Amino acid sequence: MANKFDALSRRKARVRKALRTASNGRPRLSVFRSSKQIYAQIIDDANGHTVASASTIEKDVKGKLKTGADKAAAAEIGRLVAERAKAAGVTQVIFDRSGYLYHGRIKALADAAREGGLDF
């Protein structure tokens, strides 16, 4: 019987394979969520480095949020990563949901990043 980790890693691999074919050189907005925090980073796969990142463990963000594990926190991280990406000169990205369902915190982060000016 397959456990939860195996299913998540298969979904993650399937999503990343589709992203590689569809990216056309755009950096990817990668999301990781844990039970207590959420992290987002924009990765330039061609050069292999992170362009911008944001997470709920940062001191300036942590003070504004009630918890790091709700949709309000995800929306704040989406706005923050979009702001930092635009400052770095990135406006078009491809969204890497890392095997998570596009629902809840992942959707809130993506919507806030779109509102912040990222195009995906």
Rank of each mutant, 00 (worst) to 15 (best):
G78N: 09
V15S: 04
Q37S: 10
A18D: 12
Q37P: 00
A82E: 07
L65Q: 00
D70H: 06
S35R: 11
D96H: 00
V81K: 02
Q41I: 01
G99R: 04
L65C: 00
H103V: 03
Y39C: 04
T56G: 09
A88D: 03
T56S: 13
R84H: 04
K62P: 03
A18K: 13
K4V: 13
A7V: 14
A46D: 11
A72L: 10
R20Q: 14
I42F: 05
A74Y: 07
Q37E: 14
S98A: 15
F32P: 10
S34C: 04
I77N: 05
S9C: 09
K17F: 11
V15M: 08
E58Q: 12
N24F: 15
A54K: 04
A75H: 02
G68D: 02
T91V: 13
F5W: 12
G78P: 04
R10A: 15
A69V: 01
I42R: 02
G63L: 09
G104I: 12
T21R: 14
Q41H: 05
S98V: 06
L80S: 00
Y102G: 07
S35P: 07
D44P: 01
I43H: 01
S23Y: 08
H103A: 06
T50A: 10
D60I: 04
D45Y: 07
L101C: 06
I106Q: 07
V31P: 08
F32E: 06
R26A: 13
L29V: 05
T56Y: 09
T91G: 10
D44I: 00
R105T: 08
P27Q: 08
Q37F: 13
R14W: 06
A18P: 00
S34M: 02
I38Y: 09
K17H: 09
L8K: 13
T56I: 05
D60Y: 10
N47S: 11
R97Q: 06
D6T: 13
S23N: 13
V61A: 11
I42D: 06
I77S: 04
A87D: 10
V81W: 02
L29K: 09
S55C: 13
A52V: 03
A82N: 00
